[in-house]
Each structure stands twice: as structure tokens, then as C-alpha cells.
């Protein structure tokens, strides 16, 4: 079934070595995986295995030491042009890239809403930045989403007046304004209390499914991964490699909160948990420290 779907992201033998002045650390070794369009993939692994590093590679903050990363058919690991070439390019007329589609939307542990803007201004920030202030279609969509998730009355309020869960929902809706090809969710629920986390998980899962977005979720919470994802990539401890990829496919059961309770999810949870616990005995404390610096 997967072969029919479009491959939107592909990691080919990706390795990454961090260089510091005093040391070099192999963080990822020969990581291979693909993500298909419209798929929800979770990445789990012991702490310090390079989960967040993978996201940084996708967003291009870091470049791999070797291997290829292909995002929507384009190799993003290609070296940027030399300064000389860029300088010469300044004198050439270049076609204007208008309305270039954003490739990546983010959701972080913190919502990063701009406190000086109202909720509506936060949500439409992407349109404003891209000069699409007259894009009424997107605006209508955003407005509907806000209303659907009970945020309508807060449109003209500042983020400080909202609860943590509401703020994370706004943060997700904000990324939809720029219609990204892929959504990177970097532990977006870990700062929320348990009750809120469950309901925000449900909303996020529903929004992403309705918008047919491709999403990659990095989490340390196995239950979160089993209840939300279509597939789970399990990483081993450093140097991070893909240990196993687990098919979940529990979408037919309903929202994450229901999937969480299902027998299949529980079995999966135990299985993955055992996978991780074996590896947890390995990493030394010094390795974890270096990860924090990164």
C-alpha cells in the first residue's frame, strides 16, 4: 500500500558527527527511513539518541556528515553555493519567487506565541510575513478552526489570557496558515499536565488528519506515540540508528484517547517499552551531558 503513496521525506544512510573544539561525537549512524504523504510518524528512543537532531536535520539547521535527505523530491543536503557564485548571482535578474510554499511547520514544547500580538494576529502571522494578507480563503479556514476548538471568543485576546492547552492549539493552527509540506512536532505536549495533554493530543491528531498533513512527532512518551502515530520509528541509543519501525494503524479505532485504551496499543506499548529499556542500560552519563549542549 505504501508504495502507491508519495514519498515526501527520505533519509538515506544519514550519519552525523558533532564537532566541538575538544571532541567529536557520532550522534547518528546510517539512519534510513521514509515518510509518506499524509502519514503520521512518531520517533521514540532513549534520551540522548538524537531524536531532536533528526528534526534539526530535516529543517536544515544541521547538515549531515554523510548521507542524503530528500524532502519532497529535493536533496536538502546539497552544499550551498559558494560565496563567489552567490555574489555573481546578484547581478543577474532572477525570477521572483512569489508565494513559495513553506516546507516545514513547527510545534515546539513551548508554544512560542508572540505575547504582543492577539490570537488572531498570531495565527495569521504566516500570511502577513508572506504578503498574503488578502488570502481570504486561508483566513476563513483559520477562523473556522479557531471556532471549532473553542478559541473563537479569544481571537482578540492576548496569549497570556489563554491556558497552556489552548495556547498549543493556537500554535498548531498558526502553522497551518503557511500550509507546510511537513509538520515537525518536537515534544509539543510534554509541558502540559496529563488531562490537558490527552485532549490536546486529540485535537492535534484530528486537525492533522482533517488537513491531511504529514507529521513527524518526536516524543519520549510511548503511549503518546502508539495512540497518535501510523508508524513508530524506534531509535537505539547513541550513536542513534533505526532499531525498528513498527506499524501501528489504529486509526479505525477512533481518537487517540480511545486508541490509548485498546488492547493492541497496550501490547505495542509493552513491546516498545522493552525495546527501550534494554538500551537504557547502555548510555554512559558523559554521553548524555554532551547531548544537552547540542
Amino acid at each position: 500500500m505504501e508504495s502507491k503513496r508519495k514519498e515526501i521525506l527520505k533519509f538515506e544512510n544519514v550519519s552525523l558527527t558533532y564537532h566541538t573544539k575538544s571532541d567529536e561525537i557520532l550522534a547518528l549512524e546510517n539512519v534510513n527511513f521514509s515518510v509518506y504523504e499524509g502519514e503520521f510518524v512518531a520517533i521514540v528512543g532513549p534520551s540522548g539518541c538524537g531524536k531532536t537532531t533528526i528534526l534539526s536535520l530535516i529543517s536544515g539547521i544541521l547538515a549531515p556528515s554523510s548521507g542524503k535527505i530528500i524532502l519532497d523530491g529535493r536533496d536538502i543536503t546539497q552544499k550551498p553555493e559558494s560565496a563567489q557564485k552567490r555574489f555573481l548571482k546578484l547581478f543577474k535578474k532572477k525570477p521572483k519567487e512569489k508565494n513559495k510554499q513553506s516546507e516545514i511547520g513547527y510545534m515546539f514544547q513551548r508554544d512560542h506565541l508572540f505575547d504582543w500580538r492577539t490570537i488572531w494576529k498570531n495565527v495569521t502571522l504566516g500570511l502577513e510575513v508572506q504578503g498574503r494578507k488578502n488570502d481570504t480563503e486561508t483566513k476563513e479556514k483559520l477562523d473556522n478552526l479557531l471556532n471549532k476548538y473553542g478559541l473563537g471568543p479569544f481571537k482578540n485576546k492576548k496569549p497570556t489570557q489563554l491556558s497552556g492547552g489552548m495556547r498549543q492549539r493556537v500554535a498548531l493552527i498558526r502553522t497551518l496558515a503557511i500550509n507546510p509540506k511537513i509538520l515537525l512536532l518536537d515534544e509539543p505536549f510534554s509541558a502540559l499536565d496529563f488531562q490537558t495533554r490527552l485532549s490536546v493530543c486529540d485535537s492535534v491528531s484530528e486537525i492533522i488528519a482533517n488537513e491531511q498533513k504529514t507529521a513527524i512527532l518526536v516524543t519520549h512518551d510511548i503511549a503518546e506515540a502508539t495512540s497518535m502515530a501510523d508508524r513508530i520509528i524506534i531509535l537505539s541509543s547513541r550513536p542513534g540508528t533505526v532499531k525498528r519501525i513498527v506499524d501501528v494503524n489504529l486509526k479505525h479505532l477512533g481518537p487517540p484517547i480511545v486508541r490509548r485504551e485498546s488492547e493492541v496499543a497496550r501490547t505495542l506499548f509493552d513491546e516498545i517499552w522493552k525495546d527501550l529499556i534494554v538500551y537504557n542500560t547502555e548510555p554512559s552519563s558523559s554521553k548524555e551531558k554532551t547531548d544537552e549542549k547540542i
Partner: peptide, 14 residues
Amino acid sequence: CDKDKILLMKSMNA
């Protein structure tokens, strides 16, 4: 200024 906030702006092609 928070690096993630800047990243967020960059993701909007700012």
C-alpha cells in the same frame, strides 16, 4: 530572543 521563535519565523519564509 528565543532561537525557536526565529526558526518559526524562518519556517514562514520570513
